[in-house]
Write a protein that binds this DNA or RNA. Sequence first.
RNA 1: GCCCUGGUAGCUCAAUAGGAUAGAGCAAUCGCCUCCUAAGCGAUAGGUUGUGGGUUCAACUCCCAUCUAGGGCACCA
Length: 603
Amino acid sequence: MFNQETIEIEDKILAYCAKNEVPLAELKWQPIPFNGEWGTSTSFFQTAANEAKSGKKVKVPLRAQEIAETIKDEIGTPTGISRVEAVKGYLNLYFVTADFAERVVAAILQEKSDFGRGKPKGERVMVEYAQPNTHHSFHIGHFRNAILGESLARLVEFSGFETIRAAYPGDIGLGVITVLWIYENFYKGQEPEGIHERGQWLLKLYVEATKLLTKKENETDEEQAQREAYDAERRELYRKWDEGDEYVRNLWLETREWSLVELKDILETLDIHMDAWFFESEVDQPSKAIVDELIALGIAEDERPEGGAVIVNIDEKLGLKKEKYRTNVLLRNDGTTLYLTKDLALAKVKFEDYGVDRSIYVVDVRQSLHLQQAFAILRLWGVPQAEKCYHLGYGFVSLPEGAMSARAGRLVLFKDVADEALRRVTEASKEKNPNLSEKERAEVAKSVGLGSLAYAMLSVDNSRDTVFDMDVALSFEGHTGPYIQNAHVRAASILKKFEGLKVEKLNDAPFNFEMTPHEIALIELLSRFPAKVEEAANEYRPMIMATYAYDLASAFHSFYHAVSVLKAETDAIRDARLRLVAASKQTLANALALLGITAPEVM
RNA sequence: GCCCUGGUAGCUCAAUAGGAUAGAGCAAUCGCCUCCUAAGCGAUAGGUUGUGGGUUCAACUCCCAUCUAGGGCACCA
């Protein structure tokens, strides 16, 4: 976006090299990595190496420096560039600060919340996330999934893809039936007040039921008989559900709704709005037809006549010699479907009913093989979009005391963490900013509390496992969401204090004064935002944006501390800096939005 | 047995297509609020990037080997 200079210079370098038969390698431009310095650079090592390979006797580093020097002389001082230097094989071009600064700031103030938005890409992408099981409750691991998916959706959308957000709750399976069983036998007719209490109650029932249905050590004959009787009841319930028994189905729908109401409330809190809701139960039947089709096509093998299942030997069908995707089951020998089967059916819905070009699955990394198998089968099946299926895996979230486990009672529910976050932020806010009204403080608490949680999840690479420690996630200092939000608040505070002209009217405020290194660093970061959006979206990595937001906030805090805005030396400098503050505020807000974090005006 | 991830400062993590001086935050020590919000800023200290080879002008990054942690491998999701 801000690279006009390099294009012009590249032409000159190309022309020179062509004329002098220098085997120029591709020019890669990167920012000059020294602070306080400001410009772009490229190196000639590869070019020198090309010469060496073609037989010339050259020492690569020396030759690279020689080329850099020659080109420096050749291009002179191009427009927009204040100084050119050749150092250690690199050609460094320093920008004319005033021009560049003005161009960056003006673009941001004009485009506002659209600053950084990419051009339409002409492709439709679906991001599937939020796949918790119903009849369970939303824990901190689900939160990582949700915030990662939402941030990714916002990134790809902002970068120019038409984006569809899809939820896919697991609403059927043995776990669900287990809850129905205990409810029916021991808690029938009960229903706690409050949507979260009710949702979490189902989890308690699940834990209790699991105890009743799990073999104990030193089990007596009597206990064993009881347990087996319970298990038979549960199996019978599943069978009834499967054949569509009206009573069981209604019971299931009613309790499922309790979970969904809770889930939707949490998503609403997180400002996540799904475009499509898929349910496992809905793809169960269609997936059976797909199995028949795959058998008919010779992709799947039906071993049921021999008492086996329906399987796909994926490696064999793809002609792979080494095992990679292995073999997996599409249909149990009793004719019921599996996760893989349903995912094939769902993929078909995505591609055919929703016209999706790219399909991203935000799913626990432990399911990596299963998803690769699903994608491979789609390829065998001849689905063109199979090539653009992508599994965004994420490491699991554990606790300082070990892995989360509902049965062991070691589970951190998101709702509890969110409540605690609000409590702690409210407390901190009272101390740091006593003048806020109750209403404002409540808003700040939500914004900052959820912001700190979201940032804690997004600031580590998705592939890494993380340990969720409440005190770390709810820390408000240092590399955290609130640190970034605070930079935004400080910018807002300056603008609010400025009671002269509106910032929008300060069009004639050039940066034609000697800028401090803080201002230069800040403007350089601002100019990189559009490229960062592209990078994060292309690589499907929200962490890139999380890191950027922190770097920008850090640069702003340093600037804020070291440079006076309202008390600048002259009105002209003050006005230019005000515009820079406004541009910083805008870009911080844009970056935070892509992380699913709100940017408060006060805190 | 096979496959996939990780291993970087005491701790938690970064590091763009292999590029110039491996960066942050916690924790530690020391400074900075009559001055735009101190949820902040500055400074000091902290490193043989698990180990051993190799490729390259250049390796945290690529290749091989090895140690170590975790995960996954047909009727769970």
